[in-house]
């Protein structure tokens, strides 16, 4: 791996257990440009992923700093989406997918048998490539998560959660007068912001975004990018993107994947100005990908 200044894994090989390991709280990622005192929110160590007999990821070590945006870039099929889906165990729903290695959130192993995957996914929200609002009203789309987790005591509180989530997703002004109309009737960009509102309604700690703008036009994309920048204040964000300008604009840390290997991970500024690996250089300058 090409991460000379990478922090060694703290909890590697330690017996897994939720929140048992107090060692690493307050650990610093000295790599962040400008923002130095950063806690590591999630970390992967020696992560291998297999689809049946085919190995998709090879020994990934990656730290995700808290309250910042980490972008995963790389050519198609390089494993960046696979990695993202390991972080909230969405890969569990795929037949024949096997994950080996160690992923931790706040030092607790997310592949621990004792861990409730449903609870994990309330802590780690996800926004998908294609906007996927449920065939329900705008209100019910956002209220879905809070309802199933019982986050609101009464209707008033639920209303508050819905409006504040829509507000945070920058959608409230556009839909305030039609909360009861179907979410599928919105435009593509609005649908995607609705999905972001839906994700933040359950107050996750981390939001994973899988190419959230690839199905959107440039104006809607600009909206979402602004939104990501605002969300960074409260959430840890990991975003997969094909668009290198987007990675440069929205992220603080960038990881470059190639053929299932994490080639390079560094502050976004470093990656785009002086990448240390030839392959990264080749990809960001458009020689392949």
């Amino acid at each position: 791996m090409n991460m000379d200044n990478y922090i060694p894994a703290t909890a590697k090989g330690a017996p897994a257990g939720m929140g048992i390991d107090p060692v690493a709280t307050g650990e610093k990622n000295i790599n962040m440009d400008g923002i130095e005192e950063t806690t590591i929110k999630m970390s992967a160590r020696n992560l291998d992923v297999f689809y049946g007999d085919k190995q998709a990821l090879f020994g990934i070590d990656l730290d995700v700093p808290e309250r910042s945006v980490t972008a995963l870039i790389g050519p198609s099929g390089c494993g960046k989406s696979t990695f993202l889906r390991c972080l909230n165990r969405m890969n569990d729903t795929i037949d024949g997918c096997r994950v080996e290695g160690d992923i931790r959130i706040d030092q607790s192993d997310i592949y621990d048998r004792a861990l409730d995957v449903v609870e994990l996914r309330t802590r780690i929200g996800m926004v998908f490539q294609k906007p996927n609002p449920f065939p329900k009203s705008i209100y019910d789309n956002v209220a879905y998560g809070p309802k199933i987790h019982g986050l609101a005591q009464d209707r008033e509180e639920l209303d508050h959660i819905v409006t504040s989530s829509l507000e945070k997703a920058g959608l409230l002004k556009e839909v305030a007068d039609r909360l009861e109309s179907p979410g599928t009737g919105l435009s593509g960009g609005q649908q995607q912001r609705l999905c972001i509102a839906r994700a933040i309604a359950v107050s996750p700690e981390v939001i994973l975004m899988d190419e959230p703008c690839s199905a959107l036009d440039p104006i809607a994309t600009a909206h979402i990018e602004e939104l990501i920048d605002e969300l960074r204040e409260n959430f840890t964000i990991v975003i997969v993107t094909h668009n290198m300008q987007q990675a440069a604009r929205v992220s603080q840390q960038t990881a470059f994947f190639h053929l299932g290997i994490l080639v390079e991970c560094n502050s976004t500024g470093e990656i785009f100005t002086s990448p240390s690996d030839e392959r990264t250089q080749g990809y960001i300058t458009g020689r392949y990908g």
Binding site: M90, V118, L120, T122, N132, F134, I148, H149, V202
Partner: peptide
């Protein structure tokens, strides 16, 4: 029913039966 709807529901921490009852059957 598109797989993306299931994914969306699971990613919000819904269980399988919640997903079936509240997303898949209505869809």
């Amino acid at each position: 029913v598109p797989q993306t709807l299931r994914d969306g529901s699971y990613a919000l921490g819904a269980t399988q039966s919640e997903t079936v009852r509240q997303v898949i059957v209505p869809a």
